[in-house]
Design a binder for these strands. Sequence first.
DNA 1: GCCAACGTTGGC
DNA 2: GCCAACGTTGGC
Length: 153
Amino acid sequence: MMQYWLMKSEPDAFAINDLYSRPNQTEHWDGVRNYQARNMMRDAMKLGDQVFFYHSNCDEPGIVGIMEVVREGYPDFLAFDLNDQHFDSKSDPARPRWMMVDVKYVKTLARTITLKELKQKAELADFALIRPGNRLSILPVSKKQWDFILSLE
DNA sequence: GCCAACGTTGGC
DNA sequence: GCCAACGTTGGC
């Protein structure tokens, strides 16, 4: 059964246009160093799942596009790379601590659906993104929420 | 296992 | 740049 997600990225570091210009418009979602988010990538995200691309920590935080899971959870090899800022000495290839998935660009929304706007919708009162203090970088989205958000485009 | 200190996220 | 929320670490 198809599932829906939202993944955050700071556009200064990796924006939807960066995904668009990657070979095959595909990239691995590296750098997640939070166990809850890790568990979702390791256990729950499946091939074909649809994902909102969310720009965080920027002038206009919001949902900017859609991507698709094209490879299920596998070790985040950047955690093994001493020279990478995501290096983690507690993760090694024999016992990888951090996981990632590969995502492929699907589309850019006609406009950014802003956090501000999402907060104002009674239909999204239960949406994890707009609950106070939710800093998880990967969130589940229900089909109902997904369809409603897309109807705003 | 508790909890204080500390670090990070991310909106504003 | 501020700060609230909250995850992680480490002493005990």
